[in-house]
Structures are given as C-alpha cells and as structure tokens.
C-alpha cells in the first residue's frame, strides 16, 4: 500500500536534488533545470494531497496551473539567458555581477 508519506519523501528527495543543482551549478541552463526539478517535486505534492480531495479537486487543478507556470518560466528564462549571453559572453551567474551596461 502506497501512503501519502511515500509521495512526500520522494518529492523531498527530488526537491533537494533540484536545490543542489540551483546552488552548485555554475551554468544558467542547469540552474533552470534545477528549478524545473523543484517545481516537479511541488507538483508531486499537489497531486498526492489532491488524491484525498474529491470535492474540490484542488490538488489536480493547481498541479495543472503549476505546470503551465513552469513552462512560462522556462520560456522567459531561456530568452533572458540568451540575452545575457549576448551581452556578457558568459552564462556563469558568478561572473554576472554588474547591472550597468
């Protein structure tokens, strides 16, 4: 029998792997991938709790919204990364510390 705790522990692992990618990677595309992993862990929590909510279906509905938000975030984030690369000639976030032109 698969309980709620199984889902929660798996999503905690995925979330922490995404957090590691965000913190340790020195490459903006991999940081974006880490953010995607964290959003996926959140969606897993949404659907796992939504299983117990037959009246409102809140978990599944907001899981769909979260998927759409993640897709939008990737589209804008990639456009930003390509612009930053054109401007600074690097996508290592540690080298991008100037706001002025």
């Amino acid at each position: 029998m698969i309980t709620l705790t199984h889902f929660l522990v798996v999503s905690a692992c995925i979330f922490c792997i995404g957090l590691y990618a965000v913190l340790a990677k020195r490459n903006a595309i991999m940081i974006l991938v880490g953010i995607e992993l964290m959003i996926n862990a959140a969606i897993l929590n949404f659907v796992a709790f939504g299983k117990y909510d037959k009246l409102n279906y809140g978990g599944q509905v907001f899981a769909l919204f979260a998927i759409v938000l993640a897709a939008a975030a990737v589209a804008v984030g990639l456009a930003l990364i390509l612009n930053v690369y054109r401007h600074f000639k690097t996508i290592n976030p540690e080298h991008i510390h100037e706001l002025k032109d």
């Binding site: 969606i43 939504g50 599944q60 998927i67 990737v74 589209a75």
Partner: peptide, 29 residues
C-alpha cells in the same frame, strides 16, 4: 515523475506533464 503522478490517480496531470514538459519545455531547452 509522470509515472509517479499516475499512482496518485492523476492521469490527466501525467499526460499533461508528458505533453508540456517533454514535448514543450525540454524541446525548448
């Protein structure tokens, strides 16, 4: 992860995950 959503009985979310993430986001990346 889409397979895991199926175990929470969220079949539509799993299909949407495959369509949007694998078909859209990942191809974009």
């Amino acid at each position: 992860m889409a397979g895991l959503y199926l175990f929470a009985l969220a079949d539509f979310i799993a299909i949407t995950q495959i369509l949007i993430y694998v078909g859209g986001v990942l191809i974009l990346l």
